[in-house]
Amino acid sequence: MNTESLVVSCENGILKARVLGDIDHHCAKPIREKIDDYIFKYKPDLVLLDLSLVEFMDSSGLGLILGRFNTANEIGADFKIYSPSRGVRKILELAGIERLIKIEGELRG
């Protein structure tokens, strides 16, 4: 597991998962496994997927997001996405993710 691809913290019922670097098919697997482990371990009220440091994401990221949204739902937790880049937002919009998942944070280039 590449520990540098993800930083996770849990405080006051909020599990913050900050992804570092690109999200593609190659690196999605360790990221999703680690986030799921933390969700089941901490049973948070809210899972916040922080994408503020992700410069590139392809449709593998959509699978990753929807999968974690489902994991959060399983334990009754809310799920939000934080601060996606303009490029990442474009692909989220194409898939209609914002109809399902709340996106927070300022629009950034």
Partner: peptide, 15 residues
């Protein structure tokens, strides 16, 4: 596996 979104061609087409 439920981890693929099925959006690959849609992305290519749109982008």
């Amino acid at each position: 596996t439920g981890e693929r979104s099925g959006m690959g061609f849609a992305v290519m087409q749109t982008f």
